[in-house]
Design a protein around this nucleic acid. Structure first.
Length: 130
RNA sequence: UUGACGGCCCAGAGAGCCGCCUUUGGCUUAAGUGCCUUAGGAGGAACUUCCGGACUCCACAGGGAAAUGCGCCCUGCGAAAGCAGGGGCCGUACGGGGUAAAAUCCGUACGGACGGAAAGUGCCACAGAAAACAUACCGCCUUCGGGCAAGGGUGAAAAGGUGCGGUAAGAGCGCACCGCGCACAAGGCAACGCGUGCGGCAGGGCAAACCCCGCAGGGAGCAAGGCCAAAUAUGCCCAUACGUGUCCCGCGUCAGAGGCAGAGUAGGCCGCUUAGAGUAAUGGCUCUCACAGGUGUGUAAACGCCUGACAGAAUCUGGGGUAUGGGCCGUCAACCAU
RNA sequence: GGAGUCGUGGUGUAGCCUGGUCUAACACGCUGCCCUGUCAAGGCAGAGACCGCGGGUUCGAAUCCCGUCGACUCCG
């Protein structure tokens, strides 16, 4: 797999995974997002991510757009997040995630608040240094 | 040029980098696990779920009926829903014509869920004497027994309208025109109806109230339905162990680490697709060009900046409805110029 | 994806089926006054919805019919 790829195996798609992480994992809110995370079972070094998008967020077009932007932001910053952890992200406000930059800022800001960004970089604009 | 109506078309293009889903061939892995490679990857409405059809399951001898839906006529397309064309009738507006004023009549445009109200039931508030049965309030006339419904007034609607005659006063009581009903009927495939005759008038509205007539008409839906199948529980079998017994067989008991069974949960597969299915792909960034709109500078040409409609397949498919950016063509109307 | 239910003052409901003095009722809430040293409770008075939106039927629509928008529920 290339450095920035994000195939299906890195995504959460089983109903039980979602149930498990949301019920027994950690939770933090902010930047128009909700983040649940939980260390993955032993032997898994990868970062996995799932999305939960409610119908209250908007029409199918709005929901698809938010999901794509969040997935893109996660894909580009996957190496900077703590590995061996499963993430579930749920947007609560489509206005604060209207562009790719905004989605990236929100995701990184919330992860830093949760202590899941070990290298402590300056911000999303320093991505080119990695 | 602008507007309305009708019809057709498009849904920005190209390049680079990073990615996603399915797929062809090859290598690889415990494993569609990973790598390389081939090809493909949202719409005109994919929206809505308002009608159809295919498909699947359930129900069902045959026939009838109900719920429910639809409703002028003809033709064409269609499997059906529905759509298109033409015609009839009705309503509204405008114009013509006509008149004392109207109406009948002619034309144009727009609209019409447009079978039946003399099959039955029901409802019609308030006002008004009275709302469909004439019990007639003010009133008119009178020979004081009674006669009348013209005028007033109420209302959405009041037992034909206007005019003339007539009368005690009145009234289709009589006449003309108009309206209405019935019968016949030129014509037309039909809806309908040129017209003729009869009748002085039968009698309001509502069926998107029940209903009657005609036609259609079993129910549910791919989360339909089918297949495979952990764990757990149940049943059966076998070996071991223990008990009985001197021992073996046999019999009994407990446990599991075994095997089998049907049912079947989690889960998986098929249904399912030359886009495809699952937390659900079809994306992000940069540059160039094009189009449209907004805005700023400028006399202008031009240049700069900003913005990019509605909307995302989920078994497939035919329609209806709704949302929405732009282009072209046609018809009509208004305005400007010649 | 499919099948349904419901929109009425600030909130929760009634009225709709069977159209009419509906200018829309009830409870809580709200406003003012009285009561009290003050608050609550109580008493008196009052404001607030043209019935989600747009058409149609009808003399007349919250009610009937059609379209549309929004909210909610169920089906593995």
């Amino acid at each position: 797999m290339t450095a920035q790829g994000f195939p299906r195996s890195r995504r959460l798609h089983l109903k039980n995974d979602f149930k498990n992480i949301i019920q027994s994992g950690h939770k933090i809110q902010g930047f128009g997002l909700v983040l649940w995370w939980k260390p993955a079972p032993l032997g898994k070094e990868d970062v996995r991510m799932g999305l939960v998008v409610s119908r209250k967020l908007g029409s199918a077009v709005v929901r698809n757009r938010v999901k794509r932007l969040l997935r893109e932001a996660f894909r580009l910053n996957r190496k900077r997040l703590q590995s061996g952890v499963d993430y579930i992200i749920s947007p609560r406000n489509s206005d604060s995630l209207a562009t790719a930059d905004a989605a990236e800022c929100a995701l990184l800001g919330l992860c830093r608040k949760a202590g899941l960004v070990p290298s402590l970089p300056a911000g999303p604009e320093s991505r080119a240094e990695l």
